[in-house]
C-alpha cells in the first residue's frame, strides 16, 4: 500500500521489548481537603465569590467601628446627607462628592465638615454604620437559619429515607402538611405571638424552611441506599452509623451544599421581605431589609439610601451562589483530573 517498502527493514520485525512498564506514575499523596482547596482555587468564579464574601464579612464585623457614630444615633441637623468620600469626591460622576441630585452641596449648606461615606438617612443616622450593622444582622440571621435548616433537614430526610417503610410514610405526611400551610401565615402568626426580633425571625424562617432540605436529602438517600457499594458495606458488616456517615452523607454532599448555599441568600431575602412588609426587625435595629424599606420611600430624591444596601444584598446573593457551585465541584473527587 502507500507505505514505502524501503522503510521497512528486517530489524523492525524483531520482537519489541515490552515498553509498557507500570501504567502510570502515581500522584503525590495529598489529603482530601488539600485537594478540595486546590480544585476550589482553580474555579475562578467561585474564588472571586469567596473573596467578595470575605470582604463583606470583614466589613460587616469591623465596618461599624470605622467611625464614632452609633447605628441609632440621630441628629436632624445632618439629615439626608448624600455620600461623601475623601479623594473620590474629585471624581464627579461617581456621585460621592456630597452634592445631591439638584447639584447642591449639602455638606456646605448644613455646614458639616465631617465625611459621611454612605451619607445619612432622614433621621441623620450615619448610613455607613447602619449598612454594615444591617449586613451583619442579615448575615447572622441567614447563616443561623441555613444551619438550622441543614441540621433538621439532613437528620429528618436521612432518617425518613434510611429507615423507610412506615416511618418514612408518617414523616412524609408531616412534611406535606407543613408544605400545605402558606409559610407567610406561619411567619405572621409566629411574629404576632413572639416579639419581633432576630430570634423570632430566624425561628419563623426555620419552621418551614427545612422541608426543602429534608426532601432533597431523602431523595438522595433513597437512591443511594440501593447502590451496590452500600450493599457491599453492609455485607462487610457495617453498622448504620458507618453506612450513614461514610457512604450516604458524603455522597449527598453535593446537593446538601448547593441547597444550603441557596438557602442563605433566600433567607436574607426573606428577612428583607419581612422587614419590608413591617413584620421584621423593628427600628432602630438595622438590617439590609429595613434599610431598603426606609430607602425606597425617598428613592427619587435620595437614591443613595437605597443604593448601598441593595448593592450589598445583590453581591451577597451572587457570591453565595458562586461559592456553592464551586464547592460542589471541589468536594467531588470525580472532578480530579
Amino acid at each position: 500500500m502507500s507505505i514505502n517498502e524501503k522503510e521497512i527493514t528486517d530489524d523492525l520485525f524483531l520482537p519489541a521489548d515490552s515498553e509498557n512498564g507500570t501504567e502510570a506514575i502515581s500522584r503525590p499523596t495529598i489529603t482530601y481537603w488539600a485537594e478540595v482547596w486546590k480544585r476550589f482555587r482553580k474555579n475562578k468564579a467561585a474564588f472571586i465569590g469567596l473573596i467578595l464574601i470575605s470582604i463583606i464579612l470583614a466589613l460587616a464585623i469591623f465596618g461599624p467601628y470605622a467611625n464614632e457614630h452609633g447605628y441609632d444615633e440621630q441628629n436632624l441637623t445632618r439629615a439626608n446627607l448624600p455620600p461623601k468620600i475623601p479623594i473620590l469626591e474629585q471624581v464627579s460622576w461617581l456621585g460621592v462628592s456630597g452634592t445631591d441630585i439638584q447639584g447642591i452641596d449639602r455638606y456646605k449648606e448644613s455646614g458639616i465638615t465631617e465625611y459621611f461615606w454612605f451619607g445619612t438617612d432622614n433621621l441623620g443616622r450615619d448610613l455607613w454604620t447602619r449598612v454594615w450593622e444591617g449586613t451583619r444582622i442579615s448575615l447572622y440571621i441567614a447563616i443561623l437559619a441555613a444551619l438550622i435548616d441543614l441540621i433538621i433537614g439532613v437528620v429528618y430526610g436521612g432518617i425518613s429515607a434510611y429507615y423507610g417503610g412506615r416511618i418514612d410514610n408518617i414523616m412524609q405526611r408531616i412534611v406535606e402538611i407543613l408544605v400545605g400551610i402558606p409559610s407567610l401565615i406561619v411567619v405572621i402568626l409566629l411574629i404576632l405571638v413572639l416579639q419581633p426580633g432576630i430570634i423570632s425571625i430566624t425561628l419563623a424562617m426555620v419552621i418551614t424552611g427545612w422541608v426543602g432540605m429534608a426532601r432533597i436529602v431523602r431523595g438522595q438517600i433513597l437512591k443511594l441506599k440501593e447502590q451496590e457499594y452500600v450493599l457491599a458495606s453492609r455485607t462487610l458488616g457495617a453498622k448504620d452509623r458507618r453506612l450513614i456517615w461514610k457512604h450516604l452523607i458524603p455522597n449527598t454532599m453535593g446537593p446538601i451544599i448547593i441547597t444550603t448555599m441557596f438557602t442563605i441568600p433566600t433567607a436574607i431575602f426573606t428577612e428583607a421581605f419581612l422587614s419590608f412588609i413591617g413584620l421584621g426587625l423593628q427600628p432602630p435595629i438595622a438590617s439590609l431589609g429595613t434599610l431598603i424599606n426606609d430607602g425606597y420611600k425617598l428613592l427619587r430624591i435620595y437614591p443613595h439610601m437605597l443604593a448601598f444596601s441593595s448593592i450589598i444584598i445583590s453581591l451577597i446573593m451572587i457570591s453565595f451562589n458562586l461559592i456553592g457551585d464551586g464547592l460542589r465541584d471541589a468536594l467531588d473527587p470525580k472532578m480530579r483530573k
Binding site: Q227, L231, H247, P333, K334
Partner: peptide
C-alpha cells in the same frame, strides 16, 4: 459471619463509593 461470607457485585460503577 460477615467475615466468612463475602459478596462481589455486578456493576463495577456503582459498587465502589466514588468518594473514597
Amino acid at each position: 459471619l460477615n467475615q466468612n461470607i463475602q459478596m462481589i457485585f455486578q456493576d463495577p460503577y456503582s459498587s465502589l463509593n466514588p468518594r473514597q
